[in-house]
Design a protein around this nucleic acid. Structure first.
Length: 266
DNA sequence: AATGCTAGCAACCGCCATGCA
DNA sequence: ATGCATGGCGGTTGCTAGCAT
């Protein structure tokens, strides 16, 4: 295919948009819609290429765009979604109302990458993002947890700050004060029929050596639910879902007793 | 005050996917 | 089935403001 000549060669303007150009574009789209982007600049009376108009509109002028700094919640969402989706900025933007892919991409490169540099993943395997579009259900998957809480506020029947790592049987003695959360693993928005295909297990290599910052969890398969119990009423933790094809996703979550923890699609 | 450096961000470029004739 | 036009996306560039020297 023969490439269309670039804007400059056609005598079209490049570079930053002026308020006047913005106003022309806004007025035109408000009264006519954008229709054919390539035809728009000529119809609107702009010396810009259609691509430039579309970009200006979608990234800056659209009325539903939320301007201003990203909140901590939004930044956390971006980090989680990036874990899940990789550099698919438009897919990430679709989950953050009012934010554009370009904006998210910029925030990622200027702020969040630095933030993540200081944050080491709770395991020593390399973090990988699934960067293709297929979302086949995994035939097997492994769920790994690491709590960020320490033991300092545990009830008296719980372990102390220097307690050794709990065994599953010890955990069962503290259920009265424990957190019981349910993990719901979804694929394409649909709950899995059952967890029979999942192999929940604690991978010992993921625990840190410092027992004040690492706690244990046990898995209790009751029916089709995967229950997690902790000796706390609430817990902040990293939930890792490891698929058999060596893809893994990590989510930092804060859950309280009784919460349903639904992992994003992967 | 002048200069250099850096971070942040808007905009551009090139490629790819899709729809249509 | 093929080729073209268009839209959309991700990577990259380059301008600008703010800060340090």
């Amino acid at each position: 295919m023969v490439r269309a000549p670039c804007c400059e060669k056609m005598g079209l303007k490049k570079g930053p948009w002026t308020p006047e150009e913005d106003q022309i574009l806004i007025s035109y789209i408000q009264s006519n819609g954008h229709g054919n982007w390539r035809a728009l600049p000529k119809l609107a009376g702009l010396l810009r290429c259609g691509k430039s108009c579309r970009l200006r509109w979608t990234n800056y002028l659209r009325p539903d765009i939320k301007r201003g700094n990203f909140t901590r919640e939004e930044e956390d969402s971006i980090i989680q979604l990036h874990e899940m989706l990789g550099n698919r900025w438009s897919a990430i933007a679709a989950r953050l109302p009012g934010r554009t892919d370009n904006e998210i991409k910029n925030v990622w490169h200027t702020h969040l990458k630095k933030r993540l540099k200081d944050y080491q993943p709770p395991h020593n395997s390399k973090r990988q993002s699934k960067n293709n579009n297929d979302s086949k259900a995994p035939s097997t998957c492994q769920i790994t947890l690491k709590s960020s809480n320490n033991f300092s506020n545990i009830q008296e029947d719980g372990p102390g700050p220097n307690s050794p790592q709990l065994s599953s049987s010890e955990m069962s003695t503290v259920t009265a004060d424990s957190l019981a959360a349910t993990i719901c693993v979804t694929n394409d928005g649909d709950q899995m029929d059952s967890y029979e295909n999942f192999i929940p297990e604690i991978d010992e290599s993921f625990w840190t050596d410092d027992l004040s910052t690492a706690t244990n969890s046990n898995f209790d398969m009751t029916g089709e639910e995967l229950q997690l119990q902790f000796p706390q009423q609430s817990v902040e933790m990293d939930v890792g879902v490891k698929l058999e094809d060596d893809m893994d996703f990590w989510y930092n979550v804060f859950i309280k007793s009784g919460d349903l923890l639904e992992l994003p699609e992967f």
